[in-house]
């Protein structure tokens, strides 16, 4: 029951089937990594799980702690405990980070219940310190004019504040220099716990030097073609994605 269970999921985007009978189970307390070449459907998986309307589910199911989330709207999926850190987070002019996260937390409270402002800010500042985010950022508009690293840290800040049951980190390492990557990885490692399952989606093995996964899955052409312990990432790094392609063709 304590799993994010993706069962035979098929997803179509603009008429093309991108995910094909995709299955993966992520237990709470574990970090799983999905690696794969560009165009193999990694980001489609993330968007489809988050409930983006352009991603049409044509088959299969997604169970969060045993309950299907496919009929839920994107905001309901989030409130049920799913979080996605975007590869390219939107800039939202005129909405401050503090107000944005506050609205997200407020939405998780019962009707008539109000978020307590002082406690909220105390917690927000703690998490910002953890991620080396300047406290002045609270008043800045969400992601507006942020560097790549600042955007990714802002995503992890939201993860830290919303405390989801399952987090999907879509290419969180892309566009980061090594220092920014270390900060983000430190943040994620601090948040790792028995209460959260994490799915790291990445193109490069580099991220996995800093966030060490429990399992590594190799994705190719819309499905997982190989799974293994963390060493699989190194093997993949050594052999390149062509190895995966050959492997996928051989097993298909």
């Amino acid at each position: 029951m304590n799993t994010l269970d993706i069962r035979n999921l098929s997803v179509r985007v603009a008429g093309n089937e991108i995910l094909k009978n995709f299955s993966l189970t992520i237990p709470k307390g574990e970090v799983h990594a999905i690696m794969g070449p560009n165009g193999t459907g990694k980001s489609t998986l993330a968007k489809a799980l988050a409930g983006h309307e352009d991603y049409e589910i044509t088959g299969g199911d997604v169970l969060l702690d045993g309950t299907s989330i496919l009929e839920l709207e994107p905001d309901e999926r989030s409130r049920s405990g799913l979080f996605m850190a975007f590869q390219y987070p939107s800039e939202i002019p005129g909405v401050s980070i503090a107000n944005f996260i506050r609205a997200a937390l407020q939405a998780r409270l019962a009707e008539g219940e109000e978020l307590e402002a002082t406690k909220y800010y105390k917690r927000l500042y703690e998490k910002m310190d953890l991620l080396s985010i300047d406290r002045k950022f609270t008043a800045r508009s969400v992601n507006e004019g942020f560097s790549g690293g600042e955007k990714k840290r802002c995503e992890i800040l939201q993860l830290a504040m919303l405390e989801p049951k399952y987090a999907i980190l879509d290419e969180t390492d892309s566009g980061l220099d090594i220092d920014a990557l270390k900060v983000v990885a430190h943040g994620v490692n601090t948040l790792r716990s028995q209460n959260m399952g994490v799915l790291l989606i990445t193109h490069y093995q580099r991220l996995l030097n800093y966030i060490v996964p429990d399992r590594v899955h190799v994705m190719y052409d819309g499905r997982i073609v190989k799974s293994g312990p963390k060493e699989l990432a190194l093997e993949l790094e050594a052999n390149g994605y062509e190895w995966v392609r050959d492997h996928a063709t051989a097993t298909a």
Partner: peptide, 25 residues
């Protein structure tokens, strides 16, 4: 922008209000 807001659990009406007020800011 709307999808980003929704993906954080902010309901549609509230997300819309925040985005419109963001436009005003």
């Amino acid at each position: 922008e709307m999808f980003y807001m929704l993906s954080r659990g902010i309901p549609l009406n509230k997300a819309r209000e925040l985005l419109v007020f963001g436009f005003f800011e």
